[in-house]
């Protein structure tokens, strides 16, 4: 068994107060490991996104503990949390959230710029990551001129540009057709996942389950099952 990248213990999150109080996540505990691609699967409203936010230092749980690389992230100050997200976690948002007014390479460079890397060096590094995702030739185009799959790959390049140990994908195939979605996840599995990196993917797209090492099933804010995935390897 590889080292645990993160360990969630009895995470609880509710929204609202009194009669309007609604539990989004109830007593969720799990571990994710380096070198693993863990899928979190469940229907809408099952608490996937809330859980994703709590394990990535974005949403503070009401109770429970979240250890990432043996560090309790919810004991960190807001600045330390920002640094944690910048240095340890890479995000690929469902809608990509690329900046339409910046070029593709500038989009990829954003985490590096936030890490205070000098502009030209950040651009050079970003070009290398664009090369990894096969979009070097599109570096100076605006993201809106790229296809959905290409935009997804730009978002992946941006997420890995700061060399994070943990990658978070939120519904990575939701905006893509089935074939493109599978290609993207296949690419991530082959090229982005390393023994020193843990990838967590929130999805309800069963067509890509074959790429998961494990699949954690959620419903009503609880984990209702943890099963081995297809672990498709070439």
């Amino acid at each position: 068994m590889a080292d645990p990248a993160m360990k969630a213990s009895e995470l609880v999150k509710w929204f609202g107060e009194g009669e309007a109080k609604t539990y989004a996540v109830r007593d969720v505990s799990f571990e994710a490991y380096f070198g693993e691609m863990l899928f979190i699967e469940g229907p809408s409203g099952s608490g996937k996104t809330t859980l994703l936010s709590m394990i990535s230092g974005i949403l503070r749980p009401n109770s429970g503990a979240m250890l990432v690389e043996n560090r309790d992230i919810w004991s960190l100050s807001s600045d330390q949390l920002a640094d944690f997200r910048l240095n340890t976690v890479g995000f690929v948002f469902q809608d990509y959230h690329l900046f339409p007014r910046l070029t593709t390479v500038e989009n990829v460079a954003i985490p590096l710029i936030l890490k205070k890397v000098e502009w030209n060096a950040a651009m050079d590094t970003s070009m290398r990551y664009l090369e990894i995702v096969g979009l070097k030739q599109r570096a100076h185009l605006a993201p809106v001129k790229l296809s959905g799959g290409e935009q997804q790959r730009v978002a992946i390049a941006r997420a890995i540009a700061s060399s994070p140990d943990i990658l978070i994908f939120d519904e990575p195939t939701a905006s893509l057709d089935g074939d493109t979605g599978r290609k993207i996840v296949d690419f991530v599995k082959k090229n982005i996942l390393t023994e020193k990196r843990c990838i967590i993917i929130v999805t309800h797209d069963s067509r890509i389950f074959e790429y998961a090492d494990r699949i954690m099933k959620m419903a009503d804010g609880k984990i209702i099952g943890l099963e081995k995935g297809g672990s498709r390897e070439e």
């Binding site: 600045d79 920002a82 997200r85 976690v89 948002f93 959230h97 900046f99 954003i110 936030l114």
Partner: peptide, 16 residues
């Protein structure tokens, strides 16, 4: 606004 939120998520500090 969403882009600023994305920047926050990526690790940008409020003062930045």
């Amino acid at each position: 606004l969403e882009k600023f939120g994305a920047l926050k998520a990526m690790g940008a500090k409020g003062r930045e």
